[in-house]
Amino acid sequence: MKISGAKQVHYDSGPNMTPLVDVVMVILIFLMLAGTFGGTEWYLTSNLPYSPKGGGAAQLPPGFVPDQPLEIKVDSPVPDRFIARVEGYTADDINKLSAVLIKMRDKLAAAGSPPDKVQVIISPARNVKYKFITDVYTAANQAQFQKVGFAPAR
């Protein structure tokens, strides 16, 4: 049996898509090569604390209760090492310092100062390298201290 009319379907109707595909492919390759995703870097955010004196002098709001200070003294006796001291505890790497700060956090919380009411002050010596300061900062963040500031160089 012969089906008539099948040959009347026009498969070639419609626009030629080849140039479109070419252009779209070029745009795609350009975007893949030229785009930067910025996924390799991030930021340690610090909201600098109130300073009742000095260059950043600011009027304290009425009823303002200062946060409980927690000072971390950082020294660098040799160029590629740091020592952090927190209220009698000593740590020379980020993991040990984090453990010390977690202990301090629990102690302060038991005394009525939760982590959001504690102002951590990093007090580095003049020669302490920036990478060690970010280590100390990270350890404070690991211990869930949210307010981290800096003291003048010793």
């Binding site: 870097e41 991030w42 340690l44 909201n47 600098l48 260059g55 970010t134 900062y137």
Partner: peptide, 15 residues
């Protein structure tokens, strides 16, 4: 930064 009263300071690090 403190003298200019810029309170939000972010330290750029590598993941």
């Amino acid at each position: 930064c403190m003298e200019a009263k810029v309170k939000n300071v972010n330290f750029n690090t590598v993941k």
